[in-house]
């Protein structure tokens, strides 16, 4: 049942030009950034030769690229997630799900998996690009895996935020604005500094980049994993509650 809903979601996404154009634009920008990094690396290479413990391909290309993928995808997720529930509420198709013998938990999970499927494709194309480096060099595969895990968690958490926002309004535009707001806030919250010029520990903990940077640098800490899991579970639970209350709406 969950997979039925997820499959329909993904299918509808690819039946509209939206998914294709997003992927195309994304791929173009990433390729550009990738080539720029590659050229920088080529320019730096003579100097790196003499250095002890010199940064490798992974440090100079993979990590910055994954950082860029995260930011670009954060900008795209609200466009993908706004449709999930909002649009169905607006067009009335949500009634079909509500009167079907499917629990709200499954509806939400199905929708979420559908969006994760799309994000999985984005991850796949960016990882494929990075792996092409293996043709002429060596990568630190452990660090690559940690970075990939971090990237997946960031995208999954952002998708959950977008899903929740899309349950809040029957206007997809409002849902998108809400997701942009919340995601950017989560990304930038630790820019605020206290009187001594030090950031607040709480804000640092709430901010996504703190946790993402650990993973990008190859540091897999359970506290970071728990942060992302909390974020996902919280948003999904809120979505379930919100949809349940839609039946009681005045």
């Amino acid at each position: 049942m969950i997979l039925t809903i997820a499959a329909r979601e993904l299918r509808s996404l690819f039946l509209s030009p939206l998914a294709w154009s997003l992927l195309a634009v994304m791929q173009f920008i990433l390729a550009w950034l990738f080539l720029v990094q590659l050229e920088n690396f080529g320019r730096l290479q003579p100097r790196l030769v003499g250095m002890e413990n010199a940064p490798g391909l992974t440090d100079l290309i993979v990590v910055p690229l994954f950082g860029n993928v995260a930011i670009i995808t954060l900008l795209l997720i609200p466009l993908l997630s706004m449709r999930l529930i909002s649009e169905e509420l607006r067009s009335g198709t949500f009634n079909l799900l509500l009167s079907a013998p499917v629990s709200i938990f499954r509806i939400v999970l199905g929708k979420y998996l559908g969006l994760l499927g799309m994000l999985g494709i984005i991850l796949l194309i960016s990882t494929a690009m990075v792996l092409s480096l293996l043709a002429g060099g060596e990568l630190d595969l452990g660090r690559l895996a940690a970075g990939l895990l971090g990237l997946s968690l960031v995208l999954a958490a952002a998708a959950a935020v977008g899903l929740y926002m899309s349950t809040l309004s029957a206007q997809p535009g409002v849902a998108a604005v809400g997701s942009y707001g919340l995601l950017l806030f989560l990304w930038l919250i630790n820019l605020a500094t206290g009187a001594e010029g030090k950031g607040s520990a709480l804000f640092d903990w709430i901010a996504m980049p703190t946790h993402f940077d650990h993973l990008l640098s190859g540091l897999v800490r359970s506290s970071d994993l728990i942060y992302f899991m909390l974020c996902i579970v919280l948003c999904l639970t809120l979505s379930i509650r919100r949809i349940d209350s839609l039946r009681n709406r005045p």
Binding site: S91, G92, P101
Partner: peptide, 24 residues
Amino acid sequence: PENPPLYPELTVDEYLRYCARLHC
């Protein structure tokens, strides 16, 4: 419902198959 809950991007067969799946 009052407004038929249809997905315009699906074909009739795909849509009915989806509805049937939802209803087990």
